[in-house]
Design a protein around this nucleic acid. Structure first.
Lengths: 236, 236
DNA sequence: TATAAAGGTGAATCCGCAC
DNA sequence: AGTGCGGATTCACCTTTAT
């Protein structure tokens, strides 16, 4: 099979990936669903809705089901990654601990956990918790001792000449022209990630000409930024 | 058994806790071993050696062994917590995902994950990763729907009158007069936490007169801050 | 005494090749 | 796989010493 570059493939990511040749992808950026029940809807709930739905994990069914789903797609990703490839996964406290544990269990070697600190988060209106002002990204290679790409100098250039830290201060939402809207003017994806986030992800851990895979391709930010940075991309 | 307040109990925390009466603790702050799995010595560019954490208590043979240990002490903690009690656990990417997963599996209900962003972290000398500039805290109640204490106004007071966020910008370590040292002037404990961190933890989620338990009592920061805030404390 | 310069150090999964 | 070595690599804060 020849990889279909720079296009979107419709379908379940686990099935689609099973048709890919192994060891061909340089970089994966994954924004998995928090909730299996809503997985097949057009959009997933944003964090506000998740917090409001206090039956979150009940809807979900069980941790076991989510873990099984997570293990499957992470396994599929590991198969298609090059030996030098790395993967980024983003999540919140609802799911990121389970994702991280499974990644370690599957042999992924965590290189960093990066905190996306939101400069303009949604307040916690009831004042019963701390304002949820961040999301967590895990960056990992396929195993201990594996080589990987890290463009240290490029990252320094984005941080006043000092080495980039694991906390990234970025706007919380894609806004304005960056925001993808449908024909009615409504936002098409409630969990759209800002381009600045993908810019750092792709620039730091891949090189021009590399293949970037997004198994949970939402609004297409990954493709937009990959193209701008002269990387090939595949969205599922 | 009458709880031994405001003192340190020597011994293994799991064993000690088994002797405690159940449902008596208001707040737990736990700083468990991180399972760093450091391989080699690390040197700065000027060839001086970094004094790393290589304490015996941080040695685990496998994830499985670490998980088992974690499940045991978290279970013991859950037994002694009041129905309105909450627990804080701090860790890094080496262990926090496993801790979070096990907490969810045991029925703890995560209220927040809080990021301690360090103002002065140790750099990544070789420039092969992002500077590890934060640690993660998980704050949880004993179960879904459980009542708990959150001093919203007090937290606003520490944040210029605005809602306290889930990212805390604090100094990276206890230094100077705050750092506990032995008679030779050497650091008494390798992982002492700053008082400002414990101040926020204890102030936010307990009330004067409450009992604060630290099952991995190291240098005693928890006791110092608890006393200052007029809480009882127990260190193991 | 005040200011400046120099030195020390921190929970870190920190290289890559040849032999 | 274990060892040796060439070479590229650092941030913020605190303490001590020097001017």
């Amino acid at each position: 099979m020849i990889l279909p570059l720079n296009q979107i493939i419709e379908g379940d990511c686990i099935e689609v990936l099973s048709g890919f040749p192994e060891k061909t992808i340089d970089l994966i950026f994954a924004d998995p669903p928090y909730n299996l029940q809503l997985q097949n809807e057009l959009h997933r709930p944003n964090m506000t809705k998740v917090d409001a739905v206090d039956d979150y994990w009940d809807q979900f069914g069980s941790f076991q089901e989510y873990d099984e789903f997570t293990r499957k797609w992470l396994t599929a990703c590991k198969r298609v990654l090059k030996p030098t490839g790395t993967i980024w996964v983003i999540g919140s406290y609802h799911n990121i601990f389970r994702v991280g544990t499974i990644m370690q269990d599957l042999g992924y070697w965590i290189l960093n956990d990066v905190i996306w600190v939101k400069t303009n988060p949604m307040p916690n209106w009831l004042g019963v918790r701390f304002t949820n002002a961040h999301e967590t990204l895990i960056w990992a290679s396929i195993g201990k001792g594996a080589k990987y790409t890290f463009n240290h100098q490029a990252m320094k250039g984005l941080n006043d000449g000092k080495q980039m830290r694991s906390d990234w201060w970025l706007l919380s939402l894609a806004t304005g022209a960056e925001r993808v809207k449908d024909e009615n003017g409504y936002k098409a994806h409630s969990t759209q990630k800002p381009e600045a986030l993908l810019y750092r992800v792709i620039l730091s851990s891949s090189n021009p000409g590399d293949i970037v895979l997004d198994p949970f391709f939402g609004s297409g930010t990954t493709g937009v930024v990959a193209r701008r940075l002269h990387r090939h991309w595949i969205g599922i």
